[in-house]
Nucleic acid binder design. Structure first.
Lengths: 100, 100
DNA sequence: ATAATTTTTGACAAAATTAGTCAAAATTTT
DNA sequence: AAAATTTTGACTAATTTTGTCAAAAATTAT
């Protein structure tokens, strides 16, 4: 299961880009990119979209991964993360059926 | 599928408490409680625990519901919320197997 | 109907969280 | 060991979230 951090690091290395170069292409401070690649900071949605554009990744897929990182992080320290997800799933289903 | 907001409203009404009274018991501003009951504001974890205590609900269950509200809300506007949950689930599993 | 009570709203200031930047420290490569 | 690259930490700025208050709206009682 790949994280956003791993993906953007892999993509940069694939291209043999040093951080300075990635920073120029993405127009994001290289220290920030370093933090993103280490998973220490969470990029904004706009930044995720930049990564998708520059690294030619599917925008939506990348967003899903980025969001799931966020979710996983938020609940990982709870006592029953799986249960929380199950309940959330039902709520989503319910919202879906409602807005139809 | 019940939300945190619905639960705390139901519990208060069950007791025939007006907001002012609930505010006194919970030591939370009544305007805030009103917003919680309408789902317009998200209580802190400490506040959730207060609700559980005062309304005699199972602390952990209430926290799970409160967390799942949060998750559902965060991803409900995404294009594929279900997919995001699936990925998150896998990540959680992975984290679990790792920290064992 | 209107008076009294209760709930909801909106605006605001304070508090907390998150974001971006820089330079120095640490690490890796040459 | 010098040069290049990456990581870290500290700081300020920006954004988001919080709690509070008083007034507005809605509900209930007289």
């Amino acid at each position: 299961m790949e994280t956003f951090a791993e993906i953007i690091k892999r993509e940069r290395e694939k291209r043999n880009w040093i951080l300075r170069r990635a920073a120029a292409r993405l127009d994001i401070d290289q220290a920030l990119i370093s933090k993103f690649e280490k998973g220490e900071r969470r990029p904004s949605r706009e930044q995720v979209e930049k990564f998708a554009r520059v690294y030619k990744l599917k925008r939506e897929e990348l967003i899903n991964i980025w969001m799931s990182d966020k979710i996983a992080y938020e609940i990982s320290s709870e006592s029953n993360p799986e249960k929380i997800l199950k309940i959330a799933e039902k709520k989503i289903e319910y919202l879906n059926s409602k807005n139809k």
